[in-house]
Design a protein around this nucleic acid. Structure first.
Lengths: 227, 227
DNA sequence: ATGTATAAATGACCCATGGTCATTAAAAAT
DNA sequence: ATTTTTAATGACCATGGGTCATTTATACAT
């Protein structure tokens, strides 16, 4: 088998300064992301990631303390992308609750990896990452929730703190809804084949839209009545 | 160490007929449930369960095909208890959206094991259980969602299919909200110590109440306008 | 150029744990 | 009593996350 030249370090193979280390780190993350596109999380071993990244397994642990930390970092990237898109959208004028709900649903459907990663955030990723790293992640998140939340508040005319709250609700709802809407292929096939189970399958976009519309209305309704 | 007589089979140690096997099965589930009260899921090994149940590890696999199947069964019991309580509540007259939301939040807070199990349903439990067993579980669930959903529809004056839909939404929302509201102890401590992170902590009851109220209103609002 | 020091990279190794299966022995059938 | 059946056992296996002594690329001094 031909050895890949996926690695961004050119002919030199060793990351010696900070920039090169960042590149290597990026290579590893890219490799993991590529695998994650085709494979469920539990099926991705560190050996796979190492091979895909063109390094030895031990090397991974020079850049990430645990497997979960690696994927938590990946999720961090996806979160950044998502919030960037959200901020960009909120900068456009004349946003209604319905239009926003529509946009959110559309945008999320276009980010399946993000959805899958968010779904395992609490139950898997945060469970085996050193506390300091988790806190770094949470701080980034909190900061973006704060700024985007404020924008959202303005754009949708929500009561104080309503923007952040809405974003947190979104985070609480989205993974559950996504899991309900998109079970693994074999399970999905079985469910669709059984009329008794049909009721358990939902359409992600439809449900999220309806839920968001209701919730935004609820928030807007409390505009005048604090507490 | 003194050997326990936790086992419900009296002096005879062997489960030979169906009834005795059910007892054994029950013993194992009880042992797992007891462990789960004090220990997070990932930390419970099959050896622990075996010891707690007073059997050998191999015996567990005579009653459950995988670890996940064991806990999925446990979740099935909790679901049954939850739907029983829900049905009982719905039989009482004069239920408003607010009162119901209040009741749901209260009842769920009183069932922390249920919440923890539901949280790992899709990501953990369903991943390593033979498809037929998952389908049995899903069928039970679908059946209770259908009947309780119908009752809910009546009690809250929801549009057709609104009851089941509401229950599914509840299922999508509750685990996420519970995870957000109750992180593991060390993480929680760190979050509370950091003012920047305070915004990420939410109160389960408050948020669920608000969310449910909004959603029920949303559903009731669509009463006259199908689709 | 050559030698030396630093630390990035390696991969053989450790070990915990889910799951298996040949063996044991309790109870039923004869 | 003897045989048959099958519940129960626990030594064993395979896998995969994580470690660390060793190797060696690179920077730096001479």
């Amino acid at each position: 088998m031909v050895i890949k030249n996926i690695c961004s370090l050119g002919p030199s193979r060793r990351a010696v300064n900070a920039d090169q280390k960042d590149l290597r780190r990026g290579d590893i993350l890219t490799a993991a992301a590529t695998l994650f596109e085709r494979t469920p999380y539990e099926a991705i071993t560190m050996s796979h990631v190492a091979t895909a990244a063109g390094v030895a397994k031990g090397t991974l642990y020079l850049y990430f303390p645990t497997r979960e930390a690696l994927f938590l970092h990946l999720l961090g990237q996806h979160y950044a992308g998502w919030f960037d898109a959200l901020d960009a959208r909120l900068r456009q004028p004349h946003l209604s609750a319905q239009v926003w709900a529509e946009w959110v649903a559309h945008e999320l459907v276009a980010r399946p990896l993000f959805l899958r990663l968010v779904a395992i955030l609490h139950v898997v990723l945060e469970r085996n990452v050193p506390l300091p790293e988790v806190l770094v992640f949470k701080r980034q998140l909190a900061s973006r929730v704060a700024t985007s939340g404020a924008e959202l508040e303005r754009a949708l005319d929500l009561p104080p703190a309503g923007g952040g709250r809405l974003l947190l609700w979104l985070q609480a709802v989205v993974p559950g809804l996504a899991q309900m809407a998109t079970p693994p292929a074999p399970l999905r096939a079985a469910i669709e084949a059984d009329p008794q189970l049909a009721g358990l399958l939902v359409d992600f976009t439809t449900e999220l839209r309806a839920l968001l519309a209701a919730v935004v209305h609820g928030l807007q309704g409390t505009k005048g009545t604090p507490e």
